[in-house]
């Protein structure tokens, strides 16, 4: 594969600065609504704050790749006396939890750094985190070009994993005939 120059976008999460307000979830869900900002629903957000206020656990986590399989990760980490489930750090939209799935369709969600036209200066969650728990940085790197599969394909793949490809084809055929 060819090497290409690519802007790497990073969000640094400073858990000590998180005040647990979940503004990041609210603005993320609104930005990704259609039309933009028309609905708010943290369950559709591509960032979630894993919170356990009495244990002083505040952990903003971004939605990463969709995965069809459950993992082996059931370990626990103790960091500065606080016990975290490994699962809590994981960005995957996976079958073992409802996190990072659309609440109605079950389709997986993934952070896209708020791609927009014209581009946003920073992802919206960062703009709305005025306590600076989320810090955005860009840097240029040479990386190997990879093949991107688009959102629709990821979505259909996840439905196929859940219901079987035959059922999905059957449904799509029926829907296309109806319309």
């Amino acid at each position: 594969m060819a090497k290409v120059k690519k802007i790497i976008k990073t969000i640094t999460v400073d858990v000590e600065k998180c005040n647990g307000c979940r503004a990041c979830e609210a603005i993320c869900s609104a930005f990704h609504a259609e039309p933009k900002y028309s609905t708010i629903n943290p369950e559709r957000s591509r960032i979630r704050v894993m919170r356990h206020p009495l244990k002083d656990i505040y952990l903003p986590v971004y939605a990463g790749e969709y995965t069809p399989a459950e993992c082996m990760g059931r370990d626990k980490y103790i960091i500065e006396g606080k016990e975290y489930d490994e699962c809590g750090f994981c960005r995957a939209a996976c079958p073992s939890r409802t996190l990072f799935h659309e609440p109605d369709s079950g389709l997986p969600l993934k952070c896209d750094m708020c791609e927009d036209d014209p581009p946003q200066e920073k992802p919206l969650c960062v703009q709305w985190c005025i306590n600076d728990a989320l810090i955005y940085e860009e840097r240029e790197e040479e990386v190997e070009e990879d093949v991107q599969i688009d959102d629709i394909e990821i979505g259909i793949k996840s439905l196929a994993d859940k219901y079987g490809i035959d059922k999905v084809v059957e449904t799509l055929t029926r829907m296309s005939q109806k319309s």
Binding site: Y37, I40, R44
Partner: peptide, 14 residues
């Protein structure tokens, strides 16, 4: 709850 809350004029509201 996992449902949506809607606003009427999103561009003005944001």
């Amino acid at each position: 709850g996992t449902k949506d809350v809607n606003v009427a004029r999103p561009a003005d509201f944001i």
